[in-house]
């Protein structure tokens, strides 16, 4: 029961934060709320017994992303225009998409169900990791071995983004062809 109360409390806070981000008028405020949102979701992951994702989300999602946004604001502008008129179409799109998703949940196995089909491969890991590795943490073992190629791909994504950002922000020399602005 205690667990359920905490669960509902954190989820309520998450929903409130998400709504606050949408309603937030200043950009710095939105950036801070985004950080808070990531941090709250990290706490919820901890409640759900997924500490590895929780720590990464707290460090990378709440930390790095927020700093990126704040850094961008510091060299662009912190001024955001007021949305003048309410648009109906975006709301319709998300309500429809959300309704489709909720329809999809109706056949889902219930939250926490140990018999859910989703654990098929996960159970193989739980069985095999202690036999094949000396590492007690199953997440680390899977990340580094069975699905190591995804981790390699993830590193490549970081390399790609790094190259992309460097390429975008690199200042050009005066004698080079200029970006056309008129």
């Amino acid at each position: 029961m205690f667990q359920q109360t905490v669960d509902i409390l954190v989820l309520g806070l998450l929903a409130a934060t998400a709504l606050a981000v949408v309603r937030m008028r200043t950009l710095i405020g939105a950036a801070m709320l985004m950080g808070i949102y990531s941090f709250l979701s990290a706490s919820w992951m901890l409640i759900l017994d997924a500490p590895d994702v929780a720590f990464t989300e707290a460090a990378v999602g709440a930390g790095v992303s927020t700093i990126f946004v704040l850094a961008t604001l510091s060299i662009t502008t912190i001024r955001a225009k007021r949305q003048t008129k309410f648009q109906f179409a975006p709301l319709a799109v998300v309500v429809l998409t959300g309704a489709v998703l909720i329809y999809g949940t109706l056949d889902m196995p219930h939250f926490g169900d140990p018999e859910a089909p989703v654990h098929r491969v996960g159970n193989r890991y739980i069985k095999r990791v202690p036999e094949e590795f000396k590492i007690p943490n199953a997440v680390t073992a899977v990340l580094g071995s069975y699905r190591g190629f995804d981790t390699f791909g993830e590193t490549t994504v970081v390399l790609t983004a790094g190259l992309g950002v460097l390429c975008l922000l690199r200042k050009r020399r005066e004698d080079e062809p200029k970006v056309v602005t008129e």
Binding site: D49, G122, N123, A141, V142, L143, R147, D150
Partner: peptide, 11 residues
């Protein structure tokens, strides 16, 4: 807990 969703989400 199932380790696989955690692994995927780290990526």
């Amino acid at each position: 807990t199932d380790p696989l969703p955690s692994v995927l989400m780290l990526t």
